[in-house]
Structure formats: C-alpha cells, structure tokens
C-alpha cells in the first residue's frame, strides 16, 4: 500500500474535511498506529492552531463559564464524593483490618510470651498446694500423734484392738479411748475402700449403732481417725464399708470390729 494518499489526508482529517470512505480508511490507518500519520496529524493540529490565530481571541460571556461549572460540578462532585467516600471506607476498613490483625498478633504475642510462664506458675501453684496439703496432713498427723502419745501416758485411757473381720482378715486397728474425752482410732493394713466408698466407724451401745465418722486410708493402708466422745457406754466399735458421704445406719460389710 502506498503511503502517499495519507500524507494529505492527515491534514484534511485534522480540518474535518475528510468524509465517507476516505474518512473511514484514514481512521482505520491511524488506529493501526502509523507513526508517520500520527506525526502528520500532530502537525495538522498545530496548523489548525496557527490558523485559528487568524481570529483574535475573544473573552466569552461569563454566563457560559457559570453554566459549565454548574453542569460539571453536578457531575464531578458526586463522583468525587463517592471516590472520597470509597477511599475513606477503604482506609477505614484497612485500619480496622489492621487493628484486628494487630490485636490477633498481640494476643498471639502475649499468649506466646506468657503462656509458658503461666503454665509454669500453674504447675508451681499446684505443687505448692499439694505440698501444703501434704504438710497439713503431716501436721494433722503430728497433732494426732501428739494427742495419741498424750493419751498413752494417761492411765485412764483404754486401748482396744479391732481385728480384721470378714473380707479383710489381715486388717488391724488400735483404739485409744476415754468415755468422757473420746479417742483415736489408728488403722493399719486396711486396703482402700474403693471408688466412691469410705470406711465408717460405728459405736454400738445396746445393739444400736451410732455413726462415729468417716475416714479413708493412705497408700500404705494406714489411717488415724479422731473419735468424738459419746454419751452412752460403748459395747463394740466396728468399721463398715459405706458410701463416702457416710450413712446414718450401717449397710456394708464389717471389716474391723472390737471383740
């Protein structure tokens, strides 16, 4: 295709003098990105400006400017407001998302930093509690031992032996007893009562059992149990297996009994 026709057509095109098939052909040619014709078009545009200088510039009526700015504002403002609103929302959403992220990371950070420490403190606390309970038990045991030693020095104290009965023949217990002051039951070789169960001591007077407290044994099968004084003379002391909360009248088998 020869380029010749397009050189003049760029100028004619710039002046709007092209029409019909000529115009369509040249626009297609421009759309194909012909650098030479684009240059020619720019030149023609510059000439159009030069030719326009033939007419003296004139100050347009202010009404035109006002009318245009009104129309433009009506179209520009909502779009800009929308854009600004969108920008604001985007930045707000970004900030909110960032805040959530920071909070999440902060939480993780705090958790990550302090969780081991908290766990350690928890373990320490549990150990201390256990130690305290152990010492409390030990103290209780020492107080019980002291009370028992006191009772052993007292000539008024009776020492009763309770033997294993029924299912646990090897079990044995001593009861230090004073009718007016009560006493202490010291148990050996008694196996744990089992889940949900405990041992319950009974004072039997005239054939009627009265509850005298619930106790459990330690891992070595020992127990020291305080027994409160009772009004009537006791004929027999007996221990049964009962629910751990204790019951008013014996229901389980007798494991220990005096006499």
């Amino acid at each position: 295709m020869t380029h010749e026709p397009f050189d003049t057509e760029a100028a004619a095109y710039a002046l709007g003098a092209l029409e019909g098939e000529q115009l369509a052909r040249f626009e297609t040619h421009l759309a194909e990105g012909c650098a030479r014709c684009l240059a020619a078009l720019r030149e023609a545009g510059d000439m159009a400006v030069v030719l326009a200088a033939d007419a003296a510039p004139a100050v347009p009526p202010t009404a035109v400017r006002e009318a245009l700015l009104r129309r433009v504002a009506a179209e520009a403002s909502p779009a800009r407001r929308q854009a600004e609103s969108a920008r604001w929302w985007t930045s707000w959403a970004t900030a909110a998302a960032a805040a959530v992220l920071v909070a999440a990371l902060g939480g993780l950070f705090v958790q990550g930093r302090y969780e081991p420490r908290l766990a350690a403190l928890g373990r320490e606390t549990a150990a201390l509690k256990e130690e305290l309970e152990r010492q409390a038990r030990a103290l209780g045991q020492r107080q019980a031992d002291a009370a028992i030693a006191q009772m052993l020095r007292d000539p008024a104290t009776r020492v009763l032996t309770l033997r294993g009965a029924g299912p646990i023949p090897t079990a044995e217990a001593r009861l230090l007893w004073q009718q007016e002051a009560g006493g202490w039951l010291v148990v050996t070789n008694l196996p744990p009562a089992g889940a949900g169960n405990a041992y319950e001591l009974w004072t039997i007077s005239g054939g009627r059992p009265t509850p005298a407290g619930v106790f459990n044994v330690d891992a070595s099968g020992r127990a020291t149990h305080r027994v409160e004084p009772v009004a009537q003379a006791v004929d027999v002391f007996a221990v049964t297996v009962e629910p751990e909360a204790g019951v008013a009248a014996p229901t389980g088998p007798i494991v220990l009994a005096s006499r």
Binding site: A14, L15, G16, L30, L38, L41, R42, G45, D46, A48, V49, A52
Partner: peptide, 10 residues
C-alpha cells in the same frame, strides 16, 4: 494525536 490546544481548536 496532538496538543491540548489542537484538541480544543479542532
């Protein structure tokens, strides 16, 4: 395709 001036003038 041309300067802003040409754009307006054309």
């Amino acid at each position: 395709r041309g300067t802003p001036e040409a754009w307006v003038v054309i």
